[in-house]
Amino acid sequence: MREDQAWPTVGVIGTRILLSETFDRNAITALRHSVASCAGAAGLTGDRLDDFVVAVNELLTNAVRHGGGTGRVAVWAEDGGVVCEVSDSGRGLPAERPEPMVRPPANTPGGWGLWLAEELTDTFDIVTGGDGTTVRVSSRTSLSQP
């Protein structure tokens, strides 16, 4: 996809954008650090921050590995939380995901990315099809919030 081309989205992206850019495999490490900085500035701390960064890293890696080599990431703050959406322009997922998501067998070398992203965040939404896959995750800055 071109830089000026519209990327698919799960829904409306918030207005308090902390990060929005396209990426390829060479940008993943720098993006992971940027996501950590943005999410920390928005109020995520400790294990919740670490979990969010791991989840986003899995989504970035999946977009490059399985979604055509490039993607778009957006991170924004919402009242009481941080949201990240990662989109790619691949062919989409080949089959429906089980609900609830099932942990991959321990001896499976792949297939952990989406499961981890869902396990490590408070919300997980995915839209997939022939034009690509978009995953949105969010984490609340405090466990006491609804």
Rank of each mutant, 00 (worst) to 15 (best):
F52M: 04
G113D: 05
A30L: 13
G90W: 04
L60M: 05
Q5H: 05
I13G: 10
N26Y: 09
A55M: 01
G46V: 08
G132P: 06
L31P: 04
C38T: 09
A41K: 14
L120C: 03
S20A: 14
D88G: 09
G80M: 00
G111V: 00
T108M: 13
G40M: 02
D125S: 10
W115C: 11
S34R: 15
D79Y: 06
H66F: 13
R48A: 13
E96S: 12
L120V: 11
F124N: 00
G14T: 06
D79S: 11
A74E: 10
P146R: 15
A74H: 15
G132M: 06
S34G: 05
T15V: 10
T133F: 01
L120R: 04
V53Q: 00
D24I: 01
T15N: 11
G69V: 02
E78A: 14
D4R: 14
R72H: 07
L116H: 13
E119D: 10
G68L: 02
G46R: 08
G110I: 12
R32G: 06
W7K: 01
E58A: 09
M1L: 07
V35P: 05
T22P: 00
G90H: 09
R16T: 12
A55K: 04
W7C: 06
P100F: 11
Q5W: 10
A77E: 14
C38K: 15
D125I: 03
V12S: 10
R140C: 03
A63T: 02
H33D: 13
V135T: 10
G43N: 06
P94R: 06
L114Q: 02
P109Y: 00
L143S: 15
D79N: 09
N62V: 02
R136I: 01
I17V: 15
R2H: 10
S20Q: 14
E99A: 14
Q145N: 14
T29P: 03
S20N: 14
D24N: 08
M101T: 12
N62Y: 03
T61W: 11
A27P: 00
E21R: 15
L114A: 06
D122M: 05
T15D: 14
T108C: 13
V12Q: 10
E3Q: 09
F124Y: 13
P104G: 04
V102T: 15
I17M: 12
D50L: 15
R103A: 15
